[in-house]
Structures are given as C-alpha cells and as structure tokens.
Computed example of a mutant assay.
Amino acid sequence: MPTCDHCGSHVSEHFARVFADERGRVLACPNCSANAGIAEVARRRTRTA
C-alpha cells in the first residue's frame, strides 16, 4: 500500500502512479496539501529533500 512520504497517510495506487516521483516517492497528498497544489508542493519538497 503506497503512503505519503511526508505525512504517512495512505494513498491509492492510482494516486501514486500519477504523483509519485521517479523513485516512487509520494511527497504530497490530499491530507497534507491543498488538492489544487499537490504537484507544486511535491516539486518544492523534492528540491529541498
């Protein structure tokens, strides 16, 4: 079961396929980011990680 690497919440397989980075990490999810900004938050977290 995929989880958000930032907050640990469960995410669906489909969500992980769409929003995971090239290593399969999900850096933002609806529980820890605004839905409209998930991709942008994930990009920012990737830069700082």
Results as ranks from 00 to 15, higher is better:
residue 1 M to Q: 15
residue 1 M to D: 14
residue 1 M to V: 10
residue 2 P to A: 03
residue 3 T to R: 13
residue 3 T to A: 13
residue 3 T to S: 14
residue 4 C to I: 12
residue 4 C to V: 14
residue 5 D to R: 12
residue 5 D to N: 12
residue 6 H to G: 10
residue 6 H to A: 14
residue 7 C to R: 05
residue 8 G to Q: 02
residue 9 S to H: 13
residue 9 S to Y: 09
residue 9 S to P: 00
residue 9 S to M: 04
residue 9 S to A: 15
residue 10 H to P: 09
residue 10 H to Y: 10
residue 10 H to I: 15
residue 11 V to T: 05
residue 11 V to C: 04
residue 11 V to Y: 07
residue 11 V to G: 06
residue 12 S to R: 02
residue 12 S to N: 02
residue 12 S to Y: 00
residue 13 E to N: 10
residue 14 H to E: 11
residue 14 H to G: 05
residue 14 H to I: 15
residue 15 F to W: 02
residue 16 A to E: 05
residue 16 A to C: 05
residue 17 R to E: 14
residue 17 R to Y: 02
residue 17 R to K: 09
residue 17 R to A: 08
residue 18 V to Y: 04
residue 18 V to I: 09
residue 20 A to S: 07
residue 20 A to N: 00
residue 20 A to W: 00
residue 21 D to M: 03
residue 21 D to G: 02
residue 21 D to C: 03
residue 22 E to K: 03
residue 22 E to N: 07
residue 23 R to K: 09
residue 24 G to F: 03
residue 25 R to F: 03
residue 25 R to G: 00
residue 25 R to Y: 03
residue 26 V to T: 07
residue 27 L to S: 00
residue 27 L to W: 02
residue 27 L to F: 00
residue 28 A to P: 11
residue 29 C to N: 05
residue 29 C to I: 05
residue 29 C to D: 03
residue 29 C to S: 02
residue 29 C to M: 07
residue 29 C to Q: 01
residue 29 C to T: 01
residue 30 P to N: 11
residue 30 P to M: 07
residue 31 N to D: 15
residue 31 N to T: 10
residue 32 C to T: 08
residue 33 S to I: 01
residue 33 S to D: 07
residue 34 A to P: 02
residue 34 A to H: 12
residue 35 N to V: 12
residue 35 N to G: 11
residue 37 G to S: 08
residue 37 G to F: 13
residue 37 G to E: 13
residue 38 I to M: 10
residue 38 I to R: 05
residue 39 A to N: 12
residue 40 E to K: 08
residue 40 E to Y: 10
residue 40 E to F: 08
residue 41 V to E: 10
residue 41 V to W: 11
residue 42 A to R: 05
residue 42 A to N: 13
residue 42 A to P: 07
residue 43 R to M: 03
residue 43 R to V: 11
residue 43 R to K: 13
residue 44 R to I: 12
residue 44 R to Y: 11
residue 44 R to V: 05
residue 45 R to G: 04
residue 45 R to A: 05
residue 45 R to N: 08
residue 46 T to Q: 15
residue 46 T to L: 14
residue 46 T to F: 14
residue 47 R to T: 04
residue 47 R to E: 10
residue 48 T to W: 04
residue 48 T to Y: 04
residue 49 A to T: 11
residue 49 A to R: 10
residue 49 A to M: 13
residue 49 A to L: 12
